[in-house]
Every structure is written in C-alpha cells, then in structure tokens.
Design a protein around this nucleic acid. Structure first.
Length: 574
RNA sequence: GCGUUCGUAGCUCAACUGGAUAGAGCGCCUGACUUCGGAUCAGGAGGUUGAGGGUUCAAAUCCUUCCGGGCGCACCA
C-alpha cells in the first residue's frame, strides 16, 4: 500500500471523469501529475501539481483550474478534509482523521510487509566478482554491500533475485597468481628465496595459501611448474576463494551462484556465443585502429574477429580475439552474459568498481545484440572508498601487497557500521570512511543514532511489558495526534515511496537517509517528554495514551523493515 | 585527445529524477537536561547550487559552451 499512489489514482480518475466541467481538452501530459510530500513548512499531508501540469496545455489559469479541481476533490473524496490552493497552483491536501486512522491501522496490520509492493520480476545481480588472486580489500567492500542490499531491497518487493559472483579464474593474472603460490611452496619446501618480480603477488596471504596446500597435499609433485599447473591452480583458487568467501560471510553476504570463467571456456560457450553473434552479423573479421591519444606499447595491427559494438552505442568496435587467436576477456564475458540471458532473467544488474566505467558500453552493447534488445542490463558503478583515521588518509594498493583488507577493516569496525556507512552515500560519489567516527556512540555516527532510537522504543515496551509483535490498533474516537505525532505520521507514510524509488532507481542509499530522518523525529519527540510531561509516553509505569504508543510502534516497524533491508542488526538494549 | 562521472553552506553530502522559502550532519555560536527517558534536545549564523547562455508556468536537475576534480581509455583482467 502506498497512500500517494492510492490517492493519486483517485484524483486522476476524478479529473478524467470531469474533464468537461474542468474545461480540459488536452490530457496528453497527465502522466506528469504527481502526488508528493509537501515541503516541511506547509502543514499538509499531500500535495499535487495537477493544475500546473494541465493548465498550460489547455490554456487555463492554473489558480482557477486548481480551485475547480479542489472543489471536485472535496466533494468526491471524503478522505480529503481540506484542500488549499497555493501559488502558483499547487493543491495542498489535508487528510481527515478517518483517513489517517484507516491508513495507520493498515500499517499496524501489515508490519513487516509495510513498504513493499507486489512485484514479480526475476533479477540476476552480479556483484563483488573480485579477482580470485587474494582476499577482498576495502574497495570491494562497497560494491559488495551495495549489491547485497539491492538484492534485499528487490526481494523485499517480492522479486526473485539471484546473487551471482563471476570468478575470473582464467588468463594471465591467474597464471601469475598460481606461480606466486608455486614459488612460495618452493620457498617453504626447498628454502628457495622468493624473489619479487613484476607480475608476482608478494602478499603474505600467498604464504598462507601455500602452507595450507602443502599441509593437505603431501604428495604433490612440484618439481616442474608446467606439470603441476592445473592441479595447483585448482588448489590455489580454492584457497583464495575461501578467503573471499570468509570475508563476505563476515560482512553478512552470501551469493547464490558462483560462475567460473574457466568452466565457461571448458564448456566451449564462447564459440557458441560468437557463432550466435556471427549469425546476426554483429561480428566481422578485420583490423582495429589503435586507440586515440596514447598508443599502447605492444600495439600490433592484425586481422581478428571483432564485435561491432559501435552499432549499439559503443565508441568503437571491440576485439574478440587476441593476437594469437585466443579469446579476449571481453569475449569470455560476452559468453557469460549470454548464459545469463539464456537463464531467462527479466533484468540483469552488474555492480562495478569505478575502474570499470569504460567497460559498460561494450558489455551492454553485447547484451543488446544477443537478446535482440529484450534483456536490459543495468550497470551500477560504485565510486572509490577513501579511508581515514584521525583525518589521515590510508593508501591502498593491491600490487604492492600492502592494501587494507576487509579483514583489517572488520578487526576495527563491526559489520553493522560498515554496511550502514557504505550505503550512506549515493553510489556515484566518492565515499569517505572514517574508522574512528563509526565507532563513536554519538549522533555523529548515524548507525548508532538509528539503533539507539530503536533501543529507546524497546525500553518503553519493556516497561509496559508488551511485545512489538502484539497486535495493536488505534481508534478514531480517541485519536488526537499532537504536532510531533503529526510529523511522524507523515514521515511514516513516506516509507513506501522511499523503498519504491530506491528499488526502481537502484539507489539503496535512500534508505539509510530516510531512517536517519525518521530517528530524528523520534528523538525530538522523546526529548520533548523530558521537558514537558504532557508529551511523555509512560506515566506511572503505564501507557499514558494508547494511540501515542501505537505511533511509536509504527516507527519501530519501519526501522525494523529498513534495517532488515540494510542487513544491519537492531539491538533492543544498548 | 576521447569517453564517463562529479562540482550544492567552511567541511562531508541529500534533494522524491522538472516543483513551492535548496535540506541534513560535522564544525562554529547560544540555550535546555545533569545521568538508564543516559550517550540527547531546542535555537542561531552560514547559499548567485563552478561560470555564462538557452528551454519551461517552474531548473541544482534538461540542452549548450566553457572551467575544475575523479575514474577509465588493450590484443591485460
């Protein structure tokens, strides 16, 4: 249930049914009519731009038209107690007490499903997909949380969501990784010195993986790298994926499906996919021009298969084959996405790091080509996370081996804070993450602030010896909200709008923002009680006003729903 | 050079994707509470939304030209 949608459809119908009376001829742009939350300083529940949208195209005065619409609405919708027309032609609506009570009781009944809509789409969301050459670092963390919460959000609305991880366990960098493990094993077994070369991974975790392999595979023959490569690759990847899965688990993230690039190659999916593209003549044999600007060192102009991604909005066509005729990373990735398409998802979502921005056009082009533009691939980019501690920035660099890992982070900060803070910014903006701030138990720390609101509510229920699961409702006869409660009610009504737009626009950051604002209203109300007994919720160990308690109950419901989507815990006592 | 993204209060960011007087937090100033209804609350100062031009009843938001920052620009992954 969304009261805005609810009443908007009623308003629309009334306007349509009475277009002659309203002297409306042109209604083409009526979809632009909306029903919104009025700005704070207006004391109304709903606000509509209906007159502004229709006046211009019908050559009418917006104020007069608004007055006409107002009269109709007042007559036809008994939930509207009062409507005022405000310049330049907004309709500001106040709901009747009956309407408030009805809507509130509906929420009290729905509880955990409040804010969700019945959507039935099938989503695949690929996220993290960190290279399996080592543990996760902080940079991965943001995309990981983002993807996970987005999944929660889409599931909350009733969609089916597959959380997927693409393992890039193929190609040169894996070779380098395996070689690094190999050399570490030799170091341990034969006391050979590990010499850091350009492409090798120097990190200590490689030693751990090596040691683990030795422990569990005593008979492994490591005389010759090429001979034991396949076996060692398998073992090394197991080691690094375990590290990654361990980190993910600690962050509260679990994927439904891990898709291996090596498997994809083994199953010959790339050939099949390229053939499919060839059949549609989106592939040609030819030469590519060197990129403009700086020309890469090893540039060679040779004949190869090329995907005509330009036809789908990319800046240039893209190579499917390398110099030696083997497939490029891109070719494999196309095959992977073709596999996703064949698994019949309505929507594909990829969560990428900022360094992959340039990749978006070509992969969406490929998905369009392979699905006849039927399947929509939506790529969301998470910008960098900048770590701070006492105002001093941390450097991260995976190659140097001195990166800040998720594990390091988790040693200092709990999962709840990480999850909340990673989303407390829009994804396309850089994020400053201050180690110290998120540990504070003050208003500076939004995680704490929201949790604390919930804990306070629970201190009431403890005193009253009631349970937040108990059924509760309010009554028109007694219901008399004070100014604080009015604000709270309006905020609560906004919740479905937030979850809906967060899901539609794939912007989960709206949720922490909203929860913070809701908590602010609660804390203000609570503090008023300290100042003025009239505003206290409890008197002599009993509920002072049942209806007031019901409103606090509403806050608990919404905070609970929101934090569940965020995957952040809610202690009842702090 | 090309692509992409961002530019909003001293700082970090929101703004229901075109709505009304652009909102929060931090910091600053003033006040309340004086400890489990605790870790807060109330108020104040602070803005030509990077600059110019355009579209619109209405622009931070759309178009355009600049300026500035990030990321990317392979046959790597």
């Amino acid at each position: 249930m969304n009261i805005f949608e609810n009443y908007l459809s009623k308003i629309n119908k009334i306007i349509l049914d009475n277009k002659k009376i309203l002297k409306l001829k042109i209604l083409e742009n009526k979809d632009n009519i909306n029903l919104e939350v009025p700005p704070n300083h207006f004391n109304y529940d709903l606000s509509s731009n209906a007159s502004l949208v229709l006046a211009k195209t019908n050559n009418l005065n917006p104020i007069n038209l608004a007055e006409d619409i107002k009269n109709l609405l007042i007559k036809k919708i008994d939930h509207f107690e009062n409507i005022d027309v405000t310049a330049p032609g907004f309709l500001n609506i106040k709901l009747s007490k009956d309407a408030l009570v009805l809507n509130i009781n509906e929420i009290l009944k729905n509880k955990i499903s409040y804010g969700s809509k019945k959507s039935k789409k099938n989503y695949n969301i690929e996220f993290v997909s960190a290279n399996p050459t080592g543990p996760m670092h902080v940079g991965h963390c943001r995309g990981a949380v983002f993807g996970d919460v987005l999944s929660n959000l889409l599931s909350f609305h009733g969609n089916k969501v597959t959380k997927e991880y693409y393992i890039n366990d193929y190609g040169n960098q894996i070779r380098n990784f395996v070689e690094s493990v190999y050399l570490r094993i030799r170091e341990i077994r034969f006391k050979e010195k590990f010499i850091v070369k350009e492409n090798l991974y120097p990190g200590d975790y490689i030693k751990d993986i090596a040691e683990n392999i030795i422990k569990k595979n005593k008979s492994l023959n490591i005389e010759n790298f090429e001979n034991c490569f396949e076996k060692l690759k398998k073992l090394s990847l197991l080691g690094s994926m375990n590290l990654i899965k361990r980190d993910l688990k600690k962050l509260g993230i679990e994927h439904d499906n891990f898709f291996s690039e090596t498997e994809l190659v083994k199953k010959d999916l790339v050939n099949k996919t390229v053939k499919k593209l060839q059949a549609k003549s989106f592939v040609e044999e030819g030469y590519l021009n060197p990129p403009k600007g700086e020309i890469p060192k090893n540039w060679k102009k040779t004949k190869r298969l090329i995907f005509k991604s330009k036809e789908f909005g990319d800046d240039t066509d893209r190579a499917l084959q390398k110099n030696d005729g083997s497939w490029t990373y891109f070719a494999n990735d196309i095959a992977y996405h073709f596999d996703k398409i064949n698994r019949n998802y309505d929507n594909l979502i990829n969560i990428l790091g900022a360094d992959h921005t340039g990749y978006i056009k070509r992969i969406t082009a490929a998905v369009s080509a392979l699905s006849n533009k039927k399947v929509n691939l939506n790529c969301k980019v998470c910008q960098l996370v900048k770590l701070y501690k006492h105002g001093k920035p941390f450097k991260m660099s995976k190659r140097a081996g001195d990166f800040i890992s998720v594990q390091d982070l988790l040693n200092e900060v709990n999962k709840d804070s990480i999850r909340f803070m990673m989303l407390n910014r829009s994804n396309d903006v850089e994020l400053d993450f201050d180690f110290e701030k998120v540990k504070e138990k003050t208003k500076d720390n939004p995680v704490f602030y929201v949790q604390y609101a919930y804990a306070r509510i629970n201190s009431i229920t403890r005193t009253l010896k009631i349970n937040l699961d108990d059924p509760i409702s309010i009554n028109t006869k007694t219901f008399q909200p004070n100014e604080y409660e009015e604000k709270i009610i309006r905020k609560i009504f906004e919740w479905p709008k937030i979850t809906e737009s967060a899901a539609d626009k794939l912007e989960p950051h709206k949720i922490p923002y909203y929860l913070y604002e809701l908590s602010t209203l609660f804390h203000a109300y609570w503090s008023k009680g300290n100042e003025d007994k009239k505003f206290r919720l409890i008197e002599n160990g009993k509920s002072r006003k049942k209806d007031s308690f019901a409103l606090i109950y509403l806050i608990a419901i919404v905070i609970k729903n929101g934090m569940k989507i965020l995957g952040v815990s809610l202690p009842e006592k702090m």
